[in-house]
Design a protein around this nucleic acid. Sequence first.
DNA 1: GGGCGGACTCTGGTATACCAGTTGCCTCTT
DNA 2: AAGAGGCAACTGGTATACCAGAGTCCGCCC
Lengths: 232, 232
Amino acid sequence: MTTSTAAGTSISDHAYAELSRAIATCALPPGAPINERAEAARLGMSRTPFRQALHRLALDGLIVAVPKRGTYVAPLDAGDIRDNMVVRAALEADMARRLVTEGRPVDFAKLKRCIADQRTAARSGDWLTFLGLDEAFHLAILEAAGNPRATESARRAWIHVNRARYLMPMTTRQMLDAKRGHREILEGLIAADPERVQQAIARHLGKPLARRLEELRGRLGAAFELIPGQPA
Amino acid sequence: MTTSTAAGTSISDHAYAELSRAIATCALPPGAPINERAEAARLGMSRTPFRQALHRLALDGLIVAVPKRGTYVAPLDAGDIRDNMVVRAALEADMARRLVTEGRPVDFAKLKRCIADQRTAARSGDWLTFLGLDEAFHLAILEAAGNPRATESARRAWIHVNRARYLMPMTTRQMLDAKRGHREILEGLIAADPERVQQAIARHLGKPLARRLEELRGRLGAAFELIPGQPA
DNA sequence: GGGCGGACTCTGGTATACCAGTTGCCTCTT
DNA sequence: AAGAGGCAACTGGTATACCAGAGTCCGCCC
Protein backbone atom coordinates (compact mmCIF):
# COMPACT_ATOMS: atom_id res chain seq x y z
CA MET A 1 0.00 0.00 0.00
CA THR A 2 3.01 2.26 -0.27
CA THR A 3 1.63 5.08 -2.33
CA SER A 4 4.09 6.24 -4.93
CA THR A 5 3.38 9.91 -4.46
CA ALA A 6 5.29 12.35 -6.60
CA ALA A 7 8.32 14.04 -5.12
CA GLY A 8 6.44 17.03 -3.69
CA THR A 9 5.56 15.95 -0.17
CA SER A 10 3.26 18.60 1.18
CA ILE A 11 1.85 18.41 4.66
CA SER A 12 -1.55 17.23 3.46
CA ASP A 13 0.02 14.19 1.83
CA HIS A 14 0.84 12.91 5.28
CA ALA A 15 -2.81 13.01 6.28
CA TYR A 16 -3.85 11.32 3.05
CA ALA A 17 -1.32 8.53 3.46
CA GLU A 18 -2.29 7.97 7.07
CA LEU A 19 -6.03 7.93 6.48
CA SER A 20 -5.79 5.95 3.27
CA ARG A 21 -3.87 3.20 5.01
CA ALA A 22 -6.20 3.19 8.00
CA ILE A 23 -9.26 2.92 5.79
CA ALA A 24 -7.76 0.35 3.45
CA THR A 25 -6.91 -1.95 6.33
CA CYS A 26 -10.20 -1.21 8.06
CA ALA A 27 -8.44 0.22 11.11
CA LEU A 28 -11.06 2.84 10.36
CA PRO A 29 -14.00 0.58 9.56
CA PRO A 30 -16.81 1.48 7.14
CA GLY A 31 -19.20 3.96 8.68
CA ALA A 32 -16.71 5.28 11.24
CA PRO A 33 -17.12 9.02 11.78
CA ILE A 34 -14.19 11.34 11.14
CA ASN A 35 -14.06 14.61 13.03
CA GLU A 36 -12.19 17.14 10.94
CA ARG A 37 -11.15 19.40 13.78
CA ALA A 38 -10.14 16.62 16.16
CA GLU A 39 -8.25 14.54 13.60
CA ALA A 40 -6.46 17.55 12.17
CA ALA A 41 -5.35 18.54 15.66
CA ARG A 42 -4.24 14.97 16.41
CA LEU A 43 -2.06 15.01 13.30
CA GLY A 44 -0.71 18.40 14.29
CA MET A 45 -2.06 20.33 11.34
CA SER A 46 -4.78 22.83 10.59
CA ARG A 47 -8.11 22.02 9.04
CA THR A 48 -7.11 23.35 5.64
CA PRO A 49 -4.52 20.75 4.62
CA PHE A 50 -6.45 18.04 6.43
CA ARG A 51 -9.53 18.89 4.41
CA GLN A 52 -7.45 18.63 1.23
CA ALA A 53 -6.67 15.07 2.20
CA LEU A 54 -10.33 14.40 2.96
CA HIS A 55 -11.33 15.85 -0.39
CA ARG A 56 -8.92 13.49 -2.11
CA LEU A 57 -10.25 10.53 -0.15
CA ALA A 58 -13.77 11.55 -1.14
CA LEU A 59 -12.72 11.50 -4.80
CA ASP A 60 -11.35 8.02 -4.23
CA GLY A 61 -14.76 7.15 -2.82
CA LEU A 62 -13.28 6.16 0.53
CA ILE A 63 -15.15 8.69 2.63
CA VAL A 64 -18.49 10.43 2.43
CA ALA A 65 -18.86 14.01 3.64
CA VAL A 66 -22.38 15.10 4.49
CA PRO A 67 -22.71 18.87 4.84
CA LYS A 68 -23.69 20.02 8.32
CA ARG A 69 -23.73 16.40 9.49
CA GLY A 70 -20.35 14.80 9.46
CA THR A 71 -17.75 12.87 7.51
CA TYR A 72 -17.79 9.09 7.53
CA VAL A 73 -15.72 6.27 6.17
CA ALA A 74 -17.65 5.11 3.11
CA PRO A 75 -19.78 2.03 3.65
CA LEU A 76 -19.06 -1.01 1.55
CA ASP A 77 -21.05 -1.34 -1.63
CA ALA A 78 -21.09 -4.77 -3.22
CA GLY A 79 -21.78 -3.37 -6.70
CA ASP A 80 -19.05 -0.80 -6.39
CA ILE A 81 -16.55 -3.39 -5.17
CA ARG A 82 -17.41 -5.60 -8.13
CA ASP A 83 -16.96 -2.68 -10.52
CA ASN A 84 -13.58 -1.89 -9.01
CA MET A 85 -12.53 -5.53 -9.23
CA VAL A 86 -13.32 -5.45 -12.92
CA VAL A 87 -11.28 -2.29 -13.41
CA ARG A 88 -8.33 -3.73 -11.56
CA ALA A 89 -8.49 -7.03 -13.41
CA ALA A 90 -8.74 -5.36 -16.82
CA LEU A 91 -5.78 -3.10 -16.15
CA GLU A 92 -3.54 -5.67 -14.55
CA ALA A 93 -4.23 -8.30 -17.19
CA ASP A 94 -3.42 -5.86 -19.95
CA MET A 95 -0.29 -4.58 -18.20
CA ALA A 96 0.99 -8.11 -17.63
CA ARG A 97 0.34 -8.99 -21.25
CA ARG A 98 2.27 -5.93 -22.41
CA LEU A 99 5.00 -6.76 -19.96
CA VAL A 100 5.56 -9.93 -21.95
CA THR A 101 4.96 -8.66 -25.48
CA GLU A 102 7.25 -5.70 -24.91
CA GLY A 103 9.90 -7.93 -23.39
CA ARG A 104 10.35 -5.89 -20.25
CA PRO A 105 12.62 -7.25 -17.53
CA VAL A 106 10.94 -8.98 -14.59
CA ASP A 107 12.52 -9.76 -11.25
CA PHE A 108 11.51 -13.40 -11.17
CA ALA A 109 13.49 -14.09 -8.00
CA LYS A 110 11.56 -11.44 -6.14
CA LEU A 111 8.23 -12.89 -7.27
CA LYS A 112 9.35 -16.41 -6.35
CA ARG A 113 10.42 -15.26 -2.92
CA CYS A 114 7.09 -13.51 -2.48
CA ILE A 115 5.21 -16.69 -3.34
CA ALA A 116 7.39 -18.72 -0.97
CA ASP A 117 6.60 -16.29 1.83
CA GLN A 118 2.93 -16.57 0.97
CA ARG A 119 3.19 -20.33 1.35
CA THR A 120 4.65 -19.87 4.82
CA ALA A 121 1.95 -17.38 5.81
CA ALA A 122 -0.77 -19.64 4.45
CA ARG A 123 0.48 -22.70 6.35
CA SER A 124 0.55 -20.76 9.60
CA GLY A 125 -2.86 -19.24 8.96
CA ASP A 126 -1.45 -15.70 9.06
CA TRP A 127 -3.93 -14.15 6.66
CA LEU A 128 -3.03 -10.55 7.44
CA THR A 129 0.56 -11.14 6.43
CA PHE A 130 -0.71 -13.04 3.42
CA LEU A 131 -2.78 -10.07 2.27
CA GLY A 132 0.28 -7.85 2.46
CA LEU A 133 2.32 -10.32 0.42
CA ASP A 134 -0.53 -10.63 -2.06
CA GLU A 135 -0.52 -6.88 -2.58
CA ALA A 136 3.24 -6.86 -2.97
CA PHE A 137 3.08 -9.57 -5.63
CA HIS A 138 0.52 -7.76 -7.76
CA LEU A 139 2.20 -4.40 -7.25
CA ALA A 140 5.50 -5.83 -8.43
CA ILE A 141 3.90 -6.98 -11.68
CA LEU A 142 2.18 -3.65 -12.23
CA GLU A 143 5.35 -1.70 -11.61
CA ALA A 144 7.35 -3.96 -13.87
CA ALA A 145 5.00 -2.92 -16.67
CA GLY A 146 6.36 0.61 -16.34
CA ASN A 147 3.07 2.45 -16.73
CA PRO A 148 2.63 4.65 -13.65
CA ARG A 149 -0.80 5.82 -14.74
CA ALA A 150 -2.08 2.29 -14.99
CA THR A 151 -0.52 1.39 -11.66
CA GLU A 152 -2.19 4.34 -10.00
CA SER A 153 -5.59 3.59 -11.53
CA ALA A 154 -5.31 -0.03 -10.51
CA ARG A 155 -4.30 0.92 -6.99
CA ARG A 156 -7.22 3.28 -6.64
CA ALA A 157 -9.62 0.62 -7.75
CA TRP A 158 -8.07 -2.07 -5.59
CA ILE A 159 -8.37 -0.14 -2.33
CA HIS A 160 -12.10 -0.74 -2.37
CA VAL A 161 -11.69 -4.44 -2.90
CA ASN A 162 -9.01 -4.68 -0.25
CA ARG A 163 -11.20 -3.02 2.33
CA ALA A 164 -13.61 -5.91 2.04
CA ARG A 165 -10.79 -8.43 2.20
CA TYR A 166 -9.47 -7.02 5.45
CA LEU A 167 -12.87 -7.63 7.00
CA MET A 168 -12.91 -11.24 5.88
CA PRO A 169 -10.25 -13.62 7.26
CA MET A 170 -8.97 -16.06 4.67
CA THR A 171 -8.85 -19.76 5.37
CA THR A 172 -5.64 -21.66 4.74
CA ARG A 173 -7.27 -23.27 1.75
CA GLN A 174 -8.22 -19.92 0.25
CA MET A 175 -4.70 -18.64 0.78
CA LEU A 176 -3.20 -21.69 -0.87
CA ASP A 177 -5.61 -21.27 -3.79
CA ALA A 178 -4.54 -17.66 -4.19
CA LYS A 179 -0.88 -18.67 -3.97
CA ARG A 180 -1.47 -21.22 -6.73
CA GLY A 181 -2.98 -18.46 -8.85
CA HIS A 182 0.15 -16.41 -8.35
CA ARG A 183 2.32 -19.32 -9.36
CA GLU A 184 0.36 -19.75 -12.57
CA ILE A 185 0.85 -16.08 -13.37
CA LEU A 186 4.55 -16.35 -12.65
CA GLU A 187 4.88 -19.42 -14.86
CA GLY A 188 3.17 -17.55 -17.66
CA LEU A 189 5.61 -14.69 -17.24
CA ILE A 190 8.59 -17.05 -17.26
CA ALA A 191 7.25 -18.78 -20.35
CA ALA A 192 6.77 -15.30 -21.85
CA ASP A 193 3.32 -16.33 -23.07
CA PRO A 194 1.11 -13.20 -23.20
CA GLU A 195 -2.18 -15.03 -23.57
CA ARG A 196 -1.38 -17.41 -20.75
CA VAL A 197 -0.49 -14.53 -18.42
CA GLN A 198 -3.60 -12.60 -19.30
CA GLN A 199 -5.80 -15.63 -18.73
CA ALA A 200 -4.08 -16.49 -15.47
CA ILE A 201 -4.66 -13.02 -14.09
CA ALA A 202 -8.25 -12.89 -15.26
CA ARG A 203 -8.88 -16.24 -13.54
CA HIS A 204 -7.06 -15.24 -10.38
CA LEU A 205 -8.71 -11.84 -9.97
CA GLY A 206 -12.10 -12.81 -11.27
CA LYS A 207 -14.32 -15.41 -9.75
CA PRO A 208 -12.83 -16.38 -6.37
CA LEU A 209 -13.21 -12.94 -4.91
CA ALA A 210 -16.66 -12.48 -6.38
CA ARG A 211 -17.78 -15.59 -4.51
CA ARG A 212 -16.21 -14.45 -1.28
CA LEU A 213 -17.88 -11.08 -1.67
CA GLU A 214 -21.29 -12.67 -1.44
CA GLU A 215 -20.10 -14.53 1.63
CA LEU A 216 -18.93 -11.28 3.20
CA ARG A 217 -22.18 -9.57 2.44
CA GLY A 218 -23.95 -12.21 4.44
CA ARG A 219 -21.56 -12.06 7.37
CA LEU A 220 -21.08 -8.31 7.65
CA GLY A 221 -24.34 -6.80 6.53
CA ALA A 222 -23.85 -3.77 8.75
CA ALA A 223 -20.78 -2.61 6.88
CA PHE A 224 -22.85 -2.47 3.73
CA GLU A 225 -25.40 -0.13 5.23
CA LEU A 226 -25.32 3.52 4.39
CA ILE A 227 -24.60 6.39 6.72
CA PRO A 228 -27.44 6.53 9.27
CA GLY A 229 -30.08 8.93 8.10
CA GLN A 230 -28.96 8.95 4.49
CA PRO A 231 -31.45 7.92 1.82
CA ALA A 232 -30.91 4.62 0.08
CA MET B 1 -16.87 15.63 -21.54
CA THR B 2 -19.92 15.85 -19.28
CA THR B 3 -18.49 14.75 -15.97
CA SER B 4 -20.89 12.48 -14.16
CA THR B 5 -20.32 14.04 -10.75
CA ALA B 6 -22.25 12.67 -7.85
CA ALA B 7 -25.41 14.45 -6.80
CA GLY B 8 -23.69 16.85 -4.38
CA THR B 9 -22.88 19.88 -6.50
CA SER B 10 -20.72 22.03 -4.31
CA ILE B 11 -19.42 25.38 -5.46
CA SER B 12 -15.95 24.04 -6.18
CA ASP B 13 -17.37 21.55 -8.69
CA HIS B 14 -18.24 24.48 -10.91
CA ALA B 15 -14.64 25.61 -11.00
CA TYR B 16 -13.44 22.08 -11.67
CA ALA B 17 -15.87 21.59 -14.54
CA GLU B 18 -14.98 24.93 -16.08
CA LEU B 19 -11.23 24.48 -15.83
CA SER B 20 -11.31 20.84 -16.82
CA ARG B 21 -13.17 21.65 -20.02
CA ALA B 22 -10.93 24.61 -20.79
CA ILE B 23 -7.81 22.52 -20.35
CA ALA B 24 -9.14 19.48 -22.20
CA THR B 25 -9.99 21.58 -25.23
CA CYS B 26 -6.77 23.57 -24.93
CA ALA B 27 -8.66 26.82 -24.46
CA LEU B 28 -6.12 26.94 -21.68
CA PRO B 29 -3.08 25.64 -23.54
CA PRO B 30 -0.25 23.67 -21.90
CA GLY B 31 2.00 25.92 -19.88
CA ALA B 32 -0.59 28.68 -19.41
CA PRO B 33 -0.35 30.27 -15.97
CA ILE B 34 -3.34 30.19 -13.65
CA ASN B 35 -3.64 32.93 -11.06
CA GLU B 36 -5.55 31.58 -8.09
CA ARG B 37 -6.74 34.89 -6.73
CA ALA B 38 -7.72 36.37 -10.08
CA GLU B 39 -9.46 33.26 -11.42
CA ALA B 40 -11.33 32.67 -8.18
CA ALA B 41 -12.57 36.25 -8.25
CA ARG B 42 -13.57 35.93 -11.90
CA LEU B 43 -15.66 32.87 -11.06
CA GLY B 44 -17.17 34.71 -8.11
CA MET B 45 -15.79 32.49 -5.41
CA SER B 46 -13.15 32.57 -2.72
CA ARG B 47 -9.74 30.97 -2.97
CA THR B 48 -10.68 28.04 -0.76
CA PRO B 49 -13.16 26.26 -3.03
CA PHE B 50 -11.18 27.28 -6.09
CA ARG B 51 -8.08 25.71 -4.63
CA GLN B 52 -10.07 22.51 -4.05
CA ALA B 53 -10.74 22.41 -7.76
CA LEU B 54 -7.08 23.09 -8.52
CA HIS B 55 -6.04 20.31 -6.16
CA ARG B 56 -8.31 17.91 -8.01
CA LEU B 57 -6.92 19.00 -11.35
CA ALA B 58 -3.43 18.47 -9.99
CA LEU B 59 -4.38 14.91 -9.03
CA ASP B 60 -5.64 14.43 -12.57
CA GLY B 61 -2.24 15.65 -13.71
CA LEU B 62 -3.77 18.53 -15.65
CA ILE B 63 -2.04 21.33 -13.76
CA VAL B 64 1.24 21.74 -11.94
CA ALA B 65 1.44 23.94 -8.84
CA VAL B 66 4.89 25.18 -7.93
CA PRO B 67 5.03 26.60 -4.40
CA LYS B 68 5.83 30.31 -4.29
CA ARG B 69 6.03 30.37 -8.05
CA GLY B 70 2.74 29.79 -9.70
CA THR B 71 0.25 27.29 -11.07
CA TYR B 72 0.45 26.24 -14.69
CA VAL B 73 -1.49 24.05 -17.07
CA ALA B 74 0.56 20.87 -17.25
CA PRO B 75 2.79 20.57 -20.31
CA LEU B 76 2.25 17.68 -22.66
CA ASP B 77 4.35 14.61 -22.00
CA ALA B 78 4.55 12.10 -24.83
CA GLY B 79 5.29 9.21 -22.48
CA ASP B 80 2.45 10.13 -20.18
CA ILE B 81 0.03 10.47 -23.07
CA ARG B 82 1.04 7.05 -24.33
CA ASP B 83 0.54 5.55 -20.85
CA ASN B 84 -2.89 7.10 -20.63
CA MET B 85 -3.81 5.82 -24.07
CA VAL B 86 -2.91 2.33 -22.93
CA VAL B 87 -5.05 2.68 -19.81
CA ARG B 88 -7.98 3.95 -21.81
CA ALA B 89 -7.67 1.24 -24.43
CA ALA B 90 -7.37 -1.54 -21.86
CA LEU B 91 -10.44 -0.36 -19.97
CA GLU B 92 -12.63 0.35 -22.95
CA ALA B 93 -11.75 -2.90 -24.69
CA ASP B 94 -12.59 -4.89 -21.58
CA MET B 95 -15.79 -2.96 -20.96
CA ALA B 96 -16.96 -3.46 -24.53
CA ARG B 97 -16.20 -7.17 -24.32
CA ARG B 98 -18.21 -7.47 -21.11
CA LEU B 99 -20.97 -5.45 -22.69
CA VAL B 100 -21.35 -8.28 -25.16
CA THR B 101 -20.70 -11.29 -22.93
CA GLU B 102 -23.11 -9.99 -20.32
CA GLY B 103 -25.73 -9.26 -22.95
CA ARG B 104 -26.32 -5.69 -21.91
CA PRO B 105 -28.63 -3.56 -24.05
CA VAL B 106 -26.97 -1.17 -26.49
CA ASP B 107 -28.62 1.76 -28.23
CA PHE B 108 -27.47 0.83 -31.73
CA ALA B 109 -29.53 3.60 -33.32
CA LYS B 110 -27.73 6.21 -31.27
CA LEU B 111 -24.34 4.83 -32.25
CA LYS B 112 -25.34 4.68 -35.92
CA ARG B 113 -26.55 8.25 -35.81
CA CYS B 114 -23.30 9.29 -34.19
CA ILE B 115 -21.28 7.65 -36.94
CA ALA B 116 -23.45 9.26 -39.60
CA ASP B 117 -22.83 12.66 -38.04
CA GLN B 118 -19.13 11.90 -37.99
CA ARG B 119 -19.27 11.20 -41.70
CA THR B 120 -20.84 14.59 -42.29
CA ALA B 121 -18.27 16.34 -40.13
CA ALA B 122 -15.43 14.49 -41.81
CA ARG B 123 -16.60 15.42 -45.32
CA SER B 124 -16.84 19.06 -44.41
CA GLY B 125 -13.47 19.01 -42.66
CA ASP B 126 -15.02 20.07 -39.35
CA TRP B 127 -12.53 18.31 -37.11
CA LEU B 128 -13.57 20.03 -33.88
CA THR B 129 -17.11 18.76 -34.27
CA PHE B 130 -15.68 15.39 -35.20
CA LEU B 131 -13.68 15.20 -31.98
CA GLY B 132 -16.84 15.89 -29.98
CA LEU B 133 -18.73 13.17 -31.82
CA ASP B 134 -15.81 10.80 -31.34
CA GLU B 135 -15.92 11.36 -27.59
CA ALA B 136 -19.68 10.85 -27.57
CA PHE B 137 -19.34 7.54 -29.40
CA HIS B 138 -16.81 6.11 -26.99
CA LEU B 139 -18.61 7.49 -23.96
CA ALA B 140 -21.83 5.82 -25.09
CA ILE B 141 -20.09 2.46 -25.20
CA LEU B 142 -18.48 2.93 -21.81
CA GLU B 143 -21.73 3.97 -20.22
CA ALA B 144 -23.59 1.07 -21.78
CA ALA B 145 -21.20 -1.23 -19.94
CA GLY B 146 -22.71 0.02 -16.69
CA ASN B 147 -19.47 0.31 -14.73
CA PRO B 148 -19.20 3.90 -13.51
CA ARG B 149 -15.78 3.33 -11.96
CA ALA B 150 -14.36 2.13 -15.24
CA THR B 151 -15.99 5.00 -17.09
CA GLU B 152 -14.47 7.50 -14.70
CA SER B 153 -11.01 5.95 -14.88
CA ALA B 154 -11.18 5.89 -18.65
CA ARG B 155 -12.32 9.50 -18.78
CA ARG B 156 -9.50 10.62 -16.53
CA ALA B 157 -6.97 8.87 -18.71
CA TRP B 158 -8.48 10.14 -21.91
CA ILE B 159 -8.35 13.81 -20.98
CA HIS B 160 -4.60 13.75 -21.46
CA VAL B 161 -4.85 12.17 -24.86
CA ASN B 162 -7.58 14.54 -25.91
CA ARG B 163 -5.56 17.56 -24.99
CA ALA B 164 -3.02 16.57 -27.60
CA ARG B 165 -5.74 15.90 -30.16
CA TYR B 166 -7.21 19.37 -29.76
CA LEU B 167 -3.83 20.81 -30.69
CA MET B 168 -3.65 18.73 -33.84
CA PRO B 169 -6.25 19.27 -36.58
CA MET B 170 -7.37 16.05 -38.24
CA THR B 171 -7.38 15.66 -41.97
CA THR B 172 -10.49 14.40 -43.71
CA ARG B 173 -8.72 11.13 -44.37
CA GLN B 174 -7.84 10.67 -40.71
CA MET B 175 -11.43 11.41 -39.71
CA LEU B 176 -12.77 8.91 -42.20
CA ASP B 177 -10.30 6.31 -40.92
CA ALA B 178 -11.48 6.92 -37.36
CA LYS B 179 -15.11 6.69 -38.49
CA ARG B 180 -14.36 3.34 -40.12
CA GLY B 181 -12.87 2.15 -36.84
CA HIS B 182 -16.10 3.11 -35.10
CA ARG B 183 -18.12 1.23 -37.66
CA GLU B 184 -16.07 -1.90 -37.11
CA ILE B 185 -16.67 -1.62 -33.37
CA LEU B 186 -20.37 -1.15 -33.94
CA GLU B 187 -20.52 -4.15 -36.26
CA GLY B 188 -18.79 -6.25 -33.62
CA LEU B 189 -21.35 -5.12 -31.06
CA ILE B 190 -24.25 -5.92 -33.40
CA ALA B 191 -22.76 -9.32 -34.14
CA ALA B 192 -22.37 -9.77 -30.37
CA ASP B 193 -18.86 -11.07 -30.91
CA PRO B 194 -16.76 -10.25 -27.82
CA GLU B 195 -13.38 -11.01 -29.39
CA ARG B 196 -14.18 -8.99 -32.49
CA VAL B 197 -15.24 -5.98 -30.42
CA GLN B 198 -12.18 -6.17 -28.23
CA GLN B 199 -9.88 -6.40 -31.23
CA ALA B 200 -11.66 -3.58 -33.04
CA ILE B 201 -11.26 -1.24 -30.09
CA ALA B 202 -7.65 -2.20 -29.52
CA ARG B 203 -6.94 -1.48 -33.21
CA HIS B 204 -8.88 1.76 -33.20
CA LEU B 205 -7.36 3.18 -30.02
CA GLY B 206 -3.91 1.81 -30.49
CA LYS B 207 -1.65 2.59 -33.37
CA PRO B 208 -3.19 5.51 -35.30
CA LEU B 209 -2.98 7.91 -32.42
CA ALA B 210 0.51 6.77 -31.44
CA ARG B 211 1.68 7.68 -34.92
CA ARG B 212 0.00 11.08 -34.79
CA LEU B 213 1.54 11.71 -31.41
CA GLU B 214 5.01 11.61 -32.91
CA GLU B 215 3.81 13.98 -35.60
CA LEU B 216 2.46 16.36 -32.97
CA ARG B 217 5.66 16.24 -31.02
CA GLY B 218 7.49 17.48 -34.05
CA ARG B 219 5.01 20.25 -34.79
CA LEU B 220 4.37 21.55 -31.30
CA GLY B 221 7.60 21.01 -29.44
CA ALA B 222 6.94 24.00 -27.20
CA ALA B 223 3.88 22.41 -25.64
CA PHE B 224 6.05 19.51 -24.57
CA GLU B 225 8.44 21.70 -22.67
CA LEU B 226 8.26 21.95 -18.94
CA ILE B 227 7.35 24.94 -16.87
CA PRO B 228 10.08 27.56 -17.39
CA GLY B 229 12.68 27.22 -14.69
CA GLN B 230 11.69 23.71 -13.67
CA PRO B 231 14.31 20.97 -13.84
CA ALA B 232 13.93 18.34 -16.51
C1' DG C 1 -46.34 11.33 32.48
C1' DG C 2 -45.92 11.98 27.64
C1' DG C 3 -45.30 14.85 23.78
C1' DC C 4 -43.55 18.99 21.83
C1' DG C 5 -40.71 23.22 21.20
C1' DG C 6 -36.78 26.06 21.42
C1' DA C 7 -32.11 26.96 22.25
C1' DC C 8 -27.55 25.23 22.27
C1' DT C 9 -23.89 22.68 20.20
C1' DC C 10 -21.61 20.58 16.54
C1' DT C 11 -20.88 19.81 11.68
C1' DG C 12 -18.91 20.72 6.95
C1' DG C 13 -18.44 24.72 3.74
C1' DT C 14 -16.65 29.23 2.88
C1' DA C 15 -14.15 33.54 3.35
C1' DT C 16 -10.17 35.90 4.96
C1' DA C 17 -5.72 36.84 7.15
C1' DC C 18 -0.92 35.45 7.54
C1' DC C 19 3.55 33.35 6.08
C1' DA C 20 7.69 32.52 3.70
C1' DG C 21 10.06 32.02 -0.56
C1' DT C 22 10.67 33.61 -5.48
C1' DT C 23 11.04 37.00 -9.08
C1' DG C 24 11.74 40.83 -11.42
C1' DC C 25 12.43 45.58 -11.50
C1' DC C 26 14.70 49.65 -9.86
C1' DT C 27 18.45 52.01 -8.01
C1' DC C 28 22.98 52.78 -6.77
C1' DT C 29 27.70 52.04 -7.69
C1' DT C 30 31.79 51.58 -10.44
C1' DA D 1 26.55 52.48 -19.59
C1' DA D 2 26.68 48.01 -17.50
C1' DG D 3 26.39 45.11 -13.58
C1' DA D 4 25.29 43.88 -8.96
C1' DG D 5 22.56 44.35 -4.88
C1' DG D 6 18.35 44.95 -2.57
C1' DC D 7 13.59 45.92 -2.05
C1' DA D 8 8.76 45.37 -3.22
C1' DA D 9 5.07 42.88 -5.17
C1' DC D 10 3.64 38.74 -6.22
C1' DT D 11 3.02 33.43 -5.54
C1' DG D 12 1.15 29.03 -3.38
C1' DG D 13 0.63 27.00 1.34
C1' DT D 14 -1.30 27.36 5.87
C1' DA D 15 -3.96 28.91 9.83
C1' DT D 16 -8.04 30.97 11.54
C1' DA D 17 -12.59 33.20 11.74
C1' DC D 18 -17.32 33.06 10.21
C1' DC D 19 -21.72 30.94 8.44
C1' DA D 20 -25.90 28.37 8.14
C1' DG D 21 -28.20 24.23 8.78
C1' DA D 22 -28.91 19.70 11.22
C1' DG D 23 -29.18 17.08 15.82
C1' DT D 24 -29.86 16.78 20.39
C1' DC D 25 -31.31 17.51 24.87
C1' DC D 26 -33.67 19.75 28.43
C1' DG D 27 -37.59 22.00 30.11
C1' DC D 28 -42.21 23.48 29.60
C1' DC D 29 -47.03 22.73 28.57
C1' DC D 30 -51.07 19.92 27.98
